[in-house]
Design a binder for these strands. Structure first.
Lengths: 193, 193
DNA sequence: CGATTCTTTGAAAACAGTCAATCTGTGTGG
DNA sequence: CCACACAGATTGACTGTTTTCAAAGAATCG
């Protein structure tokens, strides 16, 4: 369960064995079966979560009951309702498993402890957040500047491994279009090749 | 020129006089006239920028030449092309002034120095980034879940002070709709009241 | 296999974009 | 003070895109 995490970290940050052990010693392991929830809206998010293997999704439900996927989190991704985690307010989002999934979790306090204790881990985390913000900005740009087809093509290009792993209607949800539209875009694109 | 920054900081973080002086001593002040550029795409972004007064916009230009506003930055906001600033790659974005504007700037190195020297300033900065990421996530959710009218209403509600300060066609650009659509939404909404 | 989930298709309606023209307000120079 | 230019906002007619609703066709899984 820790193996994917070790491999992931070793590529991102130089840690001593004792530092790695310290990080792992504070982790909680959890296994989720497909469709199982890690977080439900109105609950308070209390953990930072690393996906060891499998795939999660972060989504919200609007007033009409429709689901909108904010993010996919396959292995080696971090996921949480940051707003709830940081402020302690009830979450607006849900997190559930698209496949059987193993995760590692750290409570907010333990996670902050690790950042304080291990400077290189803090550096790593800072870069992670910075990257997340960049990715987020790029996605906003895509959303406001592209039509459905362009968004779809961009998604395939940016996240090929996610695209061929999750159902089409979830890609549609992530992009903010209906599944029917995405179906039509695909068949249309094939005819043009 | 430093006064707005002092007032802003005093509400956000507890700093000693000498810490504040240290921060200000590394700042570069700059005045921009309306329409003047702070950053042009393909240049490398080298500074963190705080807006003391006035208003900037961060935008990109797509393949058809159309402008898409990623963010407005009125006084007390920070703005930069983070991707370029962090990676040193050429910027994909432009920043220019919507009004005559005063800014404070710190080079990447000096800014990092301050974060290292002043722990409370780092804490403040971490929170700032965390908030930015939350705001970004919420905007993505709005983009994928709302139609033009809902996005417009949400924008007015979230940023009333920006809404009644920038031209309508820029709000349209920020929301990812045409100015004509936004005009129609407004007149339609008035008829319903 | 039966149930469920996912994808596709068709037709109509709603929504948003495009193009061209006009209107409005603001400020500048003569 | 007026005339003019300019930026911004609006309107109408039209086109194109996307959604909605309903139905049916694959694919997957226990």
């Amino acid at each position: 369960m820790f193996e994917p995490f070790r491999k992931y970290l070793s590529e991102k940050v130089a840690l001593t064995d004792s530092q790695l052990q310290r990080i792992e010693s504070l982790a909680i392991t959890k296994h989720l079966r497909r469709k199982q929830f890690l977080l439900q809206e109105n609950d308070v998010s209390r953990h930072h979560t690393f996906v060891s293997n499998g795939c999660l999704r972060l989504f919200r439900i609007d007033l009409t009951g429709a689901e909108h996927i904010i993010k996919f989190a396959p292995e080696n991704w971090w996921v949480s309702d940051r707003e709830s985690l940081i402020t302690g307010q009830p979450a607006k989002s849900n997190i559930d498993a698209l496949e059987d999934t193993d995760v590692l979790q750290w409570t907010k306090d333990n996670f902050n402890r690790l950042l304080d204790e291990i400077p290189s881990y803090r550096d790593f985390h800072d870069k992670l957040i910075a990257r997340a913000l960049e990715a987020s900005t790029n996605r906003i740009y895509n959303n406001i500047s592209m039509n459905a087809q362009e968004k779809y093509e961009k998604f395939i290009k940016t996240y090929p491994s996610i695209f061929n792993r999750v159902p089409l209607h979830m890609v549609a949800s992530y992009l903010g279009v209906t599944r029917e539209t995405l179906t039509r875009i695909r068949t249309h694109a094939q005819n043009q090749d």
